[in-house]
Simulated assay, not measured.
Amino acid sequence: MGFCKLRLQFIILFTFTCSIAFSQKKHDTDSVYLKHFIRDINDKISGSIFMSNSKLQLVFNNYPPNNWWDDDALVRRERPKDVVYIPNNSYLIGVGVSFGNLGIRASIQTPISEYNEDIYGKSSVFRLRVDGFVKKWYLDAEYYRYSGFTDTNVAIYDSTWNRPEKLIREDIITRSTNLHAVKFTNKKFSYKAVFKQKEIQLKSAFTTYYKLRYRSENYNAAEPFIPPLARNPDSKYGTMTRLRMNDFTVIGGGAGVLVWNGFYLGAMIGIGIGGQHQSFTLDSESGIHYSMIPALDIKASGGYNAERMFITFQLNSEMTYSALPSTFNQEFLAISYFTNFEVNCGYRFDMGPHISRSVQWANHIIHTTVDAVMGKGHVKTNKKASDN
């Protein structure tokens, strides 16, 4: 628990420091060029409340063979190809605050569960996200934790299950840390406006983008992820109780936004490839593997974004893929599908002269320090001397 707190503190501190230290004013030429496409709102603080349906679906599969049979002396059944877990509660409510380049959002689950908790048990969800900008790169750091998953296939592989009883796997806990860095090639397209509501997109625009993504996912359980009746006896990975995946992927794709009288509709989609480090624990051994993995990035956003108020709808989907011992030689497969649909309502407040001056003073001190460390001031001085 202490390690998770330290990780969260590091993510927040890192993103906050970078977003302030490297936030730069646009050149005059850029401002003239972009003023008809993007409106800055750096003199305001945005507060918002949002509700989301954040679903995390875990899929476990053990090979080979793809199909095998179970005989309980009464009924001969085909065991499931996949064991699928979903949380019983994926409805979240949260609050967000954005200030210049920095944004912080946190959310927890609501009391609303999808299924009867007396039968399917309870789930717990927590999400925290911090975002900012470093020069021309957008940074997004996110942490989420899920505990308590419902086994959706128990009736398939357990022929004796014919009465209401708790199906929840309270012992399964997932923790995920995601770091994203995105760069867009067209300055007319504002990711800050379309997906973060930190600017206002005035005209339609399209762009290509590049994305670097680091993800660390940790799955833990007291009992094996795959129940005994659903387990392939020929697979040594069937007794796995812990799986940690650290992957780094490079993604490329396109993004665009259509704007009309304050209303907008935007989307981005990209594909990529990366490398993954896998560590796992079985009942008799532990091990480490490395693998190449595919990457998919899908985001969509729409709504109304004005100077003071914004109401937006957003959808994003991500997939984590892990195969042991390798992608091309699969004996154990774990896939997590994360889908988030969100409704966000917010309002922008004036900073006021005192807060504005404090921010300008802090930025000036940090800019001066960074320039001194990076030697930019020295370069400028030499350039002026050479011009004379």
Rank of each mutant, 00 (worst) to 15 (best):
H354S: 07
G270P: 02
G252T: 03
S322R: 07
Y157G: 01
T239Y: 11
N220A: 10
R175I: 07
R169P: 00
I293N: 06
L265R: 05
K198G: 04
I168L: 14
K380E: 11
V194E: 00
K166A: 09
I12Q: 08
F328H: 09
I311G: 13
I12A: 14
I365Y: 12
I168W: 00
R79L: 06
K192P: 00
D28I: 10
N316E: 07
R129G: 01
G132A: 10
Y264D: 02
Y304N: 09
I86P: 04
Q276I: 11
N246V: 03
D158E: 13
T339S: 13
N42L: 15
F16N: 06
V373W: 15
Y304T: 11
N261Y: 10
G352E: 06
L8F: 11
I108A: 12
W68A: 06
D30Q: 05
Y214P: 02
V130T: 10
N101C: 05
K122R: 07
G303A: 09
A106F: 13
I366G: 04
I86R: 01
E307M: 13
W69S: 10
D30V: 11
I226G: 00
K135S: 14
R127P: 00
L258Q: 09
C345A: 13
R308E: 06
W161L: 15
S176G: 12
K166Y: 04
N363I: 03
D30F: 08
D387F: 11
I298H: 08
K122Q: 02
A221I: 06
